[in-house]
Design a binder for these strands. Structure first.
Lengths: 239, 239
DNA sequence: AGACAACAAACTGTATACAATTAAGAGGTA
DNA sequence: TACCTCTTAATTGTATACAGTTTGTTGTCT
C-alpha cells in the first residue's frame, strides 16, 4: 500500500525512495502552496513551470493534475491552472469535515498508543515547541500540520491518513487565503495537552479538546472572512 | 465548487454539462470497475484503451491518473496500469474509515432533513426496492452505493460527499475482489429503515444502525477473505 | 470618444514520435 | 534438462509539434 504523494509530504518516511520527477514537482508545488510562497490565485502556466523545473509540459501537467484533484489548484478548460481560492463555503466544509473525522478517529488513536506511529507524535510536539521558542514561525506551522496528519496515521489506517492529509493541505491553503497571523500561529493550546488527555484514557475529553481546537482555528479565519471581499454575482443579479 | 468526477458518477446531477473527453473516459472506466465488468488485476494498456475510445494515449493517461489517485487502479513505474487489487488490510481500512465517517455524519444529515438532497434519499430507496423486486441485481447494487453517497451529500458538505464517494467506489472494488453474492446483494435490511430512524430524531439509534450495517457488509467479505489465496511472502520468510 | 471587428500573442488540448524500460522467448552451453 | 545470455516485441516515459481557444490590442468607422 503506497502512501499518496500528499501524505508523503507530511510523513517523515523513507526519503530515499525512487521518486519520479513528476512526483517531485508535485511535492515542491504542494510545499510552496501550503507554506504560502505561492499565493491563492497565482497563475501556473505550464510553459514557465516546465522551464523552471527543466521538464516538458507533459510532466508538469501530470503534477498539476494531481494538485487539481486535491482542489489545491483549479484548472479551467483552456484557461489553465492557478492556485485555488476556496470559497467560504468550501472553507467551512473543509473544517466541518476535519472536525467530524479528526474527532471520530481519536478512539482509534487510543487503541494504538503503544505504536511507533503514536510515539512519533511526541517527537513532533517537541519539535513544534522548539520551533516556537526559536521563533521559527514557518517551521512551527508545518509541524502543527504534520501533527494532525500523524494523529490520523497513528490510527494505523492509511486511508484515513490520506484523507486527513488532503484536508490538512486544503486548510493551509484556506488559512493562506483568509487567515490572519493569529489563525496560523496561535493554536490555542498545545498539542501536548491532547496527547496527555489521550494517554489518560479520557477519550471524551480528548475528543472535546479536538473539536474545540479545530473550531477555534476556523473561527479565527471565519471572522477575518467577514471583512472579506468575495462577491456572489449570481445571487446578486438573479432577477 | 465543481464536484469531482468520482462524485458526479453517483449524483444524478446535470448530465448535459460539457464533460471533457478524458472525464467521460474516467467515468466509463470507473463504472466498468464498480460494476465488475473490469475485474481486479485486469491490465489496462494505454494503446488498446486509446483505440477503444478513439483517442490518443495522452487522453487515456489523464483518465488513468485520476483513477490511480483514487486507488481504483494501480500504476507501477514502467509497468503500466491495472485494476487495483486492494490488500486485506486496505479493505479493512476502507470499511473502518467508512464506519467512522458515515456514522459521524448522521447528525449533520438530520440537520438537513428538509433539504432537497435529503428528499432524494427517499427516491433512491424507492428505486432500490423496485430494482430488487424486478430482480435487477446490478442496478440494485448501484443504487445502494448511490444511497450512501447521497447521504453524505445530504449533509450539504461537498467535501464529505467526495470523500464518501471515493470510499464507496473502493468498496465496490473490494466487494468485487473478495465478496460473495451475499455481500453484494443482502444489505441486511433496508435503507428505508435508516431514513425512518433519522426522521424520528433518534440520532443514536440511526448511528448504531449505520455502524452495524457497514460492519455486516464488511463481515461478509471478511469471512470470504479468510478462505482466500493471498500469501504474504514477506512475513512468511522473515527469518 | 466609443463601439466594434480583425488581428496577434499566449496558452492549453491532443496527437504523435522517439527513447527507455520491461518481459519473454530463442539459442547456446554445461 | 537446467541455466544463462542475447535479442526482440510490447509498453510506458517524455518531449515536441500543431491545432484550437482565449484574451487583449490595435485600428477603423461612426
Amino acid at each position: 500500500m503506497t502512501p499518496s504523494p500528499n501524505l508523503s509530504v507530511y510523513v517523515s518516511a523513507d526519503e530515499s525512495k525512487s521518486t519520479t520527477r513528476d512526483e517531485k514537482i508535485f511535492r515542491e508545488l504542494l510545499q510552496a502552496i501550503i507554506d504560502r510562497r505561492l499565493r491563492p490565485g497565482t497563475r501556473l502556466p505550464e510553459d514557465s513551470l516546465g522551464e523552471a523545473f527543466n521538464v516538458s509540459r507533459t510532466t508538469i501537467r501530470k503534477a498539476l493534475q494531481k494538485l487539481a484533484q486535491q482542489r489545491l489548484i483549479s484548472m479551467e478548460h483552456n484557461r489553465g491552472a492557478r492556485v485555488a481560492q476556496p470559497s467560504r463555503k468550501e472553507a467551512e466544509d473543509v473544517f466541518t469535515a476535519r472536525r467530524l473525522i479528526e474527532v471520530a478517529l481519536i478512539p482509534k488513536v487510543y487503541e494504538n498508543v503503544k505504536s511507533d506511529a503514536y510515539k512519533e507524535l511526541h517527537t513532533l510536539v517537541k519539535q513544534e515547541i522548539a520551533a516556537r521558542e526559536a521563533g521559527k514561525f514557518q517551521e512551527e506551522v508545518q509541524l502543527s500540520a504534520r501533527f494532525h496528519v500523524q494523529l490520523a496515521v497513528a490510527t494505523g489506517n492509511l486511508i484515513l491518513g490520506e484523507q486527513v492529509a488532503q484536508l490538512t493541505s486544503l486548510s493551509s491553503l484556506i488559512i493562506s487565503l483568509y487567515g490572519t497571523s493569529a489563525s496560523v500561529g496561535c493554536d490555542c493550546g498545545e498539542h501536548k495537552d491532547l496527547l496527555a488527555l489521550i494517554e489518560s484514557g479520557d477519550i471524551a475529553k480528548a475528543q472535546h479538546w479536538m473539536d474545540h481546537h479545530l473550531e477555534k482555528i476556523y473561527q479565527t479565519i471565519n471572522t477575518s472572512m467577514d471583512s472579506g471581499e468575495e462577491v456572489d454575482f449570481k445571487s446578486l443579479f438573479s432577477s
